[in-house]
Computed example of a mutant assay.
Amino acid sequence: MTTLTAPVVQPFSKELNTSCCFESRSYKEALARLNLMIQNRYLGVLTGEVGGGKSTLIRRLFADLDDMTYAPIYLCKAGLKPRDFYGAMLTHMGVEPCYNVGKARQQWEEALQARTAQGERMMVVVVDEAHEMSDAMLSELRFVMNHNMDSCSLFPLILVGQPELRKILRLKKHEATVQRIGMQYHLTAMTKEETYGYIRHHMKVAQMDKPLFAEGALQRVFAASQGLPRVTNQICTQTLLDVTNKDLEVIEESHIARVLADMDRQRGIGGSSS
Score class of each variant (00 low, 15 high):
residue 193 E to M: 14
residue 108 W to R: 03
residue 149 M to S: 11
residue 76 C to P: 04
residue 57 L to I: 05
residue 166 R to K: 14
residue 18 T to L: 02
residue 82 P to E: 04
residue 53 G to C: 05
residue 245 N to W: 08
residue 246 K to P: 00
residue 268 G to C: 06
residue 127 V to Q: 02
residue 219 Q to D: 15
residue 209 D to S: 15
residue 249 E to A: 10
residue 13 S to Q: 06
residue 98 C to L: 09
residue 179 Q to G: 09
residue 192 K to L: 15
residue 44 G to W: 05
residue 274 S to L: 12
residue 47 T to Q: 00
residue 93 M to T: 13
residue 65 L to M: 08
residue 178 V to W: 09
residue 152 C to V: 14
residue 38 I to Y: 00
residue 127 V to D: 03
residue 211 P to Q: 02
residue 102 G to M: 02
residue 193 E to R: 14
residue 46 L to C: 06
residue 59 R to Q: 07
residue 195 T to R: 13
residue 34 L to S: 02
residue 235 I to C: 10
residue 222 F to L: 07
residue 44 G to A: 14
residue 188 T to L: 14
residue 270 G to C: 08
residue 184 Q to P: 03
residue 200 R to I: 13
residue 187 L to I: 04
residue 238 Q to D: 09
residue 121 R to T: 12
residue 154 L to C: 07
residue 10 Q to Y: 12
residue 48 G to V: 04
residue 259 V to S: 04
residue 185 Y to T: 03
residue 76 C to G: 10
residue 214 A to N: 10
residue 157 L to P: 01
residue 89 M to S: 04
residue 5 T to G: 02
residue 225 S to C: 07
residue 72 P to I: 04
residue 186 H to Y: 05
residue 67 D to M: 09
residue 206 A to P: 02
residue 170 R to Y: 07
residue 158 I to H: 06
residue 142 R to C: 02
residue 28 K to H: 07
residue 71 A to E: 15
residue 119 G to C: 02
residue 148 N to I: 05
residue 265 R to P: 05
residue 251 I to M: 04
residue 108 W to M: 15
residue 142 R to Q: 11
residue 166 R to E: 15
residue 48 G to F: 14
residue 222 F to Y: 15
